[in-house]
Write a protein that binds this DNA or RNA. Structure first.
Ligand code: FES
Ligand code: FES
Lengths: 159, 159
DNA sequence: GCAAAACATTATTTTTTTGTCAAGATTGGT
DNA sequence: ACCAATCTTGACAAAAAAATAATGTTTTGC
């Protein structure tokens, strides 16, 4: 269970744009330099995000990228879904094994785990907006702990 | 954010062993056939799980694999951690980009998200044991929804 | 003791993911 | 009109992950 490079860098690029003042924009070389990735790579990421409608772009001199929506209205689960090539949902069909579908079709004890995990992650991500990621690390961390705090309570009860 | 093939299949193999009666065991070909993967692949997975101490094995004719601990004492977060090559924790050092470490070292808004997500997943997994996965799909699903239910409550409050 | 059945371990191949390159298209300034 | 800065897009190459193959070791049963 890990976050893919595309998910992470795509999100990072969006955060860079979220840091801008209204009216400002960033070019590909600027984004690439600020995140320490190549311009070509940033280009592909931004192309994805543009296609998905998260950013707008202007061509030509003085062009660049800027957020299409206010950062406070962009939830992280939407972003991740786009960057992850939508392979998350339909798990049982795209089975890597020899068989076409999962051998446990009909009554499967694994499916709830896979699906449930994705739901938990999605739910956590849906509670975070881009705007919440522009602050200092400690403020972001504190925000995140509100979500995790609920879990700790549950765990404490269980023991 | 997705579960890797190794995580999924390793977990599946363990569930197969958890289904056994005490004293029984499964051979590699049996495990492979039940999960629809190749014998060689199952062999590698079981080797990992054996090395990590989750299963014991006996060689020779009438050999096979069986759980080293009761299924009710094996938590999923331990299993996943072993199958995922421990790359989960130290994220900021193993940065794929051009730089040695994350460009935001010192004050990073992304780090809490990465770390926090892993903690949330780990926490959820730590609440599930192998024994809970041997039932019918609906029973496993119901168990999982107890965990997710907490999230729903939180979400409802937020709105 | 020998052969068959089974696990153990390392190496190789295949597939998927990630990152790069290059040619094209659009805009703004001069 | 021209040029330079910029995004766009598809093809390509490198890296990582996954799966397979190959070889070796141990045990059982005869
Ligand atoms: S039926 Fe899809 S994971 Fe089992
Ligand atoms: S410092 Fe590690 S993700 Fe930013």
């Amino acid at each position: 269970m890990k976050i893919s490079a595309q998910e992470e860098y795509g999100l990072r690029c969006l955060v860079q744009l979220a840091n801008l003042q209204p009216g400002e924009s960033l070019t590909l070389p600027q984004i690439a330099e600020r995140e320490g990735i190549s311009t070509a790579n940033a280009g592909k990421l931004m192309w994805l995000l543009n296609k998905a409608g998260f950013v707008h772009s202007t061509r030509g001199t003085k062009g660049g990228y800027f957020l299409a929506r206010p950062a406070s209205e962009v939830r992280l689960n939407e972003v991740i879904k786009v960057l992850d090539q939508d392979v998350l949902n339909k798990h049982c069909e795209s089975y890597t094994g020899v068989l076409d579908s999962c051998v446990h079709n009909g009554d499967c004890g694994i499916r709830p785990v896979i699906v449930g995990l994705h739901e938990i992650v999605e739910n956590a991500l849906s509670q975070i907006t881009l705007a919440q990621l522009v602050g200092t690390e400690s403020s972001v961390d504190a925000m995140f702990h509100q979500i995790k705090g609920i879990h700790r309570t549950l765990e404490a009860q269980r023991i």
